[in-house]
């Protein structure tokens, strides 16, 4: 890892025995993993395994019931999300994550002001418009009128222009056309070069594993695999098989074997 901030010894993020719940529903059970400074970790697993919950708990949106979250050597467990954000963690939530009633420029100002300070806002705005001319063209347009891809671009722009210490990105590729996904990943790669550590929550497994060196596979809110990315697909397949065995309902027409049967059909139809 080539990291420019001289903090190689301190992990960017350390998650220890993290548990969390939505009201009465428990979602995480003792999740632990570490993101080295400037490193990139993929967080994968089947739907409902708790990937997004890990992201939200780490960033303080959901309160942890147990365990610790350490950001660059600082214990931020129990901090409100806004303090964690100021401490250098940027969480890009899944889906539409802009303020649709505010203009593009107001969205950017809001993001830069607290993270980078009052004086830096003008400079960062200029940089954002230079790098993403489409945002400059639409700076006075309400963010809600942007297309889905542009909205995602807007929320990423705040991170890419003012690189934080750690980015937690949740389902960046969800609902995006493959070409836009390429742009997004290029931006993330640049961030990492700049020394920002990444936690990537993804459904598109191949893609994310290609750019991370370490992967965490979640199953039912617990870690099923934590190691090099190369070993993750096998672990994920195990988890998915186990999930399939559980949901395969007797007497329901054997859903498990249908995909196999079906995969042949288009060829036969040709």
């Amino acid at each position: 890892m080539t990291v420019g901030n001289g903090r190689e010894d301190v992990a960017a993020l350390e998650v220890r025995g993290l548990s969390a719940a939505y009201g009465p529903y428990r979602a995480l059970f003792g999740v632990s993993f570490t993101v080295p400074a400037g490193g990139a970790v993929a967080l994968i697993g089947p739907n409902g395994a708790g990937k997004s919950t890990v992201a939200r708990t780490v960033s303080g949106l959901v309160a942890a019931t147990e365990g610790r979250v350490v950001l660059c050597g600082r214990d931020v467990t129990g901090w409100p999300a806004w303090r964690i954000a100021r401490a250098g963690m940027a969480h890009v939530p899944e889906g539409r994550a802009v303020f649709s009633a505010l203009s593009v420029e107001e969205n950017l100002v809001l993001a830069f002001r607290r993270r980078a300070g009052r004086g830096a806002v003008g400079r960062l705005l200029g940089r954002a418009y230079e790098r993403f001319p489409v945002l400059g063209e639409r700076r006075h347009q309400r963010a809600g009128t942007l297309s889905g891809g542009q909205q995602r671009l807007l929320s990423l722009a705040t991170v890419l222009v003012a690189p934080p210490r750690l980015v937690v990105a949740d389902e960046l590729s969800l609902g995006l056309a493959p070409r836009v996904v390429d742009d997004v990943y290029t931006g993330l790669a640049e961030l990492q070069v700049a020394g920002t550590a990444l936690v990537l929550v993804e459904q598109q497994v191949e893609r994310v594993l290609a750019m991370t060196d370490q992967a965490v596979v979640l199953e039912h809110g617990a870690v099923a695999y934590d190691g090099p990315s190369a070993g993750a697909p096998a672990a994920l397949a195990r988890v998915v098989r186990a999930a399939g065995a559980q949901t395969g309902r007797p007497g329901s027409g054997g859903l498990d074997d249908e995909p196999g049967r079906d995969a042949d059909q288009p060829v036969g139809e040709g």
């Binding site: 949106l61 954000a85 969480h91 705040t158």
Partner: peptide
């Protein structure tokens, strides 16, 4: 929630 992620209380 989203506003918190921008570092705003």
């Amino acid at each position: 929630r989203l506003v918190q992620l921008q570092g705003v209380d």
